[in-house]
Amino acid sequence: MAEQPIDDEFDLDAAWAEERREPFRFRWAGVRWEVPHLSEIVDWRQVADADSMDLPAIQKLLRTGMGERAEEWERVTQPVPAMFKLYDQWLAHSGMMPGEALGSDDSSESTEEPSPPTSTTTTGSASAKPSSAPRKRASRSRS
């Protein structure tokens, strides 16, 4: 029996259906591959781990993204430089830059106003005129 929706509850199923994004498709080793948009990775904690660009975290994220084809993916050669290029392109497809955590696409601008300066800047001295005291010289004692 399906649950009946309540008028005042948030329907995450409906909201998520509206947010679905296109998967990232690429060709490697002569084979077409597909991974979901990073925002659709099942375990969001993996995305946070991979944000550090840690190689094992990225490998785990790619295996997760491969889903049913993960074993097939593990059998192909995966040179580190190529996999970093792949990860960078996957990030770009997902609207992110390396080192940027997943966040809301529609975040608003900061509402903070700039702080007022705490002091004024000057290039002059507070003295009315240069000092007239004789200049001191370092003593040079010989031993």
Rank of each mutant, 00 (worst) to 15 (best):
A126T: 08
D7L: 13
A48L: 14
P98Y: 00
V31R: 15
E74H: 00
E74T: 07
P79V: 07
F24S: 08
P116D: 00
A82C: 05
A92I: 02
S107A: 13
V35A: 08
E100A: 06
T77C: 09
D11N: 12
W16L: 15
E112S: 02
F10I: 15
T77I: 12
V31I: 15
A14N: 13
K85N: 09
S104M: 00
A14I: 13
H37Q: 13
I41C: 00
E71D: 09
R32Q: 14
V35E: 05
V35D: 06
I6Q: 14
E71K: 11
W90I: 04
Q46A: 11
A15Q: 10
E40W: 05
Y87E: 05
R135I: 08
G124V: 05
I6Y: 12
Q59I: 13
D54C: 09
A57T: 05
D43A: 10
F84H: 04
T77A: 15
A29I: 08
E22T: 13
E3V: 11
A92R: 05
M1D: 14
Q89M: 08
G95R: 02
V31K: 15
E9I: 03
H93L: 01
Q89G: 07
D54E: 14
D13L: 13
E112A: 00
L55Y: 12
D13A: 14
H37M: 12
E22H: 08
Q78S: 06
T123S: 09
A29Q: 15
E100D: 04
D51M: 14
V76D: 02
S119M: 12
L62G: 06
T111P: 01
W33F: 00
M83D: 03
H37N: 15
S141F: 01
R20I: 14
E112G: 04
R21D: 14
S107E: 08
